[in-house]
Computed example of a mutant assay.
Amino acid sequence: MGNIVAIGYGNDLRSDDGIGQRVANTLQLSNVKSLAVHQLTPELAEILANADLAIFIDACLTSESSEVQVRSLSPNSSNIITGHTADPRSLLALTQVLYGHCPTAWWVIVPGEDFTVGDRLSPIAEQGVAIAVEKIAQIVNQGKIYE
């Protein structure tokens, strides 16, 4: 596969909300450009336009899911970019409109339970980070498709 980008996002000063950044910083795949950001911004569209595959990594509450999830993503312009932040689907739609290209994309969602002020991940989040790294490696190296 050609250019691959992994974008982990979330607030690393709000405990488990920093899961996405932790995964991005933990990835050690030579063929993947890994970015850790606080939020998805329109400026990321240029990076996505040059990618063949994009993987977004974010946290969710354990009440939403107790397992690491991998979902395919498609551009969706119905989610308007408000202010300077976006969600993965609206960012992909912006990339398509501005650059006429949008990469194949996956969303890796990792459960967390502690979103209070702090810089440490809960045990469930730490476990989720390890699982997410494995799943991303499978997507990148083996082309494994999740649904």
Rank of each mutant, 00 (worst) to 15 (best):
residue 2 G to S: 14
residue 5 V to Q: 04
residue 6 A to V: 14
residue 6 A to L: 12
residue 7 I to S: 06
residue 8 G to W: 04
residue 8 G to L: 00
residue 9 Y to I: 08
residue 9 Y to N: 05
residue 11 N to D: 11
residue 12 D to A: 14
residue 13 L to H: 08
residue 14 R to G: 04
residue 14 R to D: 06
residue 16 D to T: 01
residue 19 I to N: 07
residue 19 I to V: 15
residue 19 I to Y: 06
residue 21 Q to P: 07
residue 21 Q to C: 15
residue 26 T to W: 06
residue 27 L to G: 04
residue 27 L to K: 00
residue 28 Q to T: 12
residue 29 L to Q: 08
residue 30 S to V: 03
residue 31 N to W: 00
residue 31 N to C: 14
residue 34 S to K: 06
residue 35 L to S: 09
residue 35 L to N: 04
residue 36 A to F: 12
residue 36 A to V: 09
residue 39 Q to N: 15
residue 44 L to Q: 10
residue 45 A to W: 08
residue 46 E to Q: 14
residue 47 I to P: 00
residue 48 L to C: 05
residue 51 A to G: 09
residue 52 D to E: 15
residue 53 L to V: 04
residue 53 L to M: 11
residue 54 A to T: 02
residue 56 F to L: 09
residue 59 A to F: 08
residue 61 L to H: 13
residue 61 L to E: 12
residue 66 S to R: 14
residue 68 V to P: 02
residue 68 V to K: 00
residue 69 Q to F: 07
residue 69 Q to V: 08
residue 74 S to C: 14
residue 74 S to W: 14
residue 77 S to F: 13
residue 78 S to F: 13
residue 80 I to Y: 14
residue 80 I to K: 15
residue 81 I to K: 03
residue 84 H to Y: 13
residue 85 T to W: 06
residue 86 A to W: 02
residue 86 A to G: 09
residue 88 P to H: 05
residue 91 L to H: 08
residue 93 A to I: 04
residue 95 T to I: 09
residue 96 Q to I: 06
residue 96 Q to L: 15
residue 97 V to I: 15
residue 98 L to C: 13
residue 98 L to R: 07
residue 101 H to W: 08
residue 102 C to F: 03
residue 103 P to G: 01
residue 103 P to Y: 02
residue 106 W to G: 06
residue 107 W to G: 00
residue 107 W to M: 06
residue 107 W to F: 15
residue 110 V to S: 04
residue 113 E to Q: 11
residue 115 F to I: 07
residue 115 F to Y: 04
residue 115 F to R: 02
residue 119 D to F: 07
residue 123 P to A: 13
residue 123 P to G: 10
residue 125 A to N: 01
residue 125 A to E: 02
residue 127 Q to M: 11
residue 128 G to Y: 00
residue 131 I to Q: 11
residue 131 I to S: 02
residue 134 E to T: 12
residue 134 E to K: 11
residue 138 Q to P: 05
residue 142 Q to S: 13
residue 143 G to L: 00
residue 143 G to P: 03
residue 145 I to S: 00
residue 145 I to N: 07
residue 146 Y to T: 07
